[in-house]
């Protein structure tokens, strides 16, 4: 039985087995390769996507659990290729290096800043507990997020 969901505003139907990780449905079936399968154990956060507006790790979310739900991936956060305020600040802060963690970072932080418009530095760091980065040493990412918030 196909699994139906909305992905970045579009109704989609997946033929995947119900226990297939959502990350594989998005990448292999829908060719949305923004989210990255890096650890496949919910610790690195590179596959983070919004499910009904909440950031979840797509590697540990079975496809069956997103039946009827609305999914937004990093590709869906920048309509028409226009960067959102967080992405713009990350460019300005020269924060990006290899870039593999950023699809997840951007999803997590975009959601976090919407929920917590004026965060402290420690709150931003705590929000990133599930988003590892091996290149940057985090500080510019944190600084860009604080910059978006104007704090």
């Amino acid at each position: 039985m196909p699994i139906e969901m909305t992905v970045n505003g579009e109704a989609r139907r997946s033929a995947a087995d119900p226990m297939t990780p959502l990350i594989d449905v998005l990448r292999d079936e829908f060719h949305l390769t923004g989210a990255k399968p890096v650890c496949r154990e919910g610790f690195c956060g590179a596959c983070t996507v919004l499910v009904d507006g909440e950031p979840l790790v797509a590697c540990l979310t079975p496809a069956a659990l997103v039946e009827g739900r609305e999914i937004r991936t990093v590709e869906g956060l920048s309509a028409g290729g226009r960067l959102n305020p967080l992405q713009t600040r990350l460019v300005e802060h020269d924060a990006v290096q290899c870039g593999m963690c950023f699809p997840g970072m951007v999803v997590t932080l975009t959601h976090f800043l919407a929920q917590t418009p004026r965060p402290s530095r420690d709150q931003v760091r705590a929000a990133l507990t599930g988003n590892a980065c091996r290149c940057t040493g985090y500080e510019r990412i944190v600084a860009a997020a604080l910059d978006v918030a104007g704090v």
Binding site: G42, G45, P55, L56, V57, T108, A126, A127, T129, G130
Partner: peptide, 9 residues
């Protein structure tokens, strides 16, 4: 426990 995304699931 764990991290924010895991705590949501």
């Amino acid at each position: 426990s764990a991290n924010p995304a895991i705590r949501r699931a």
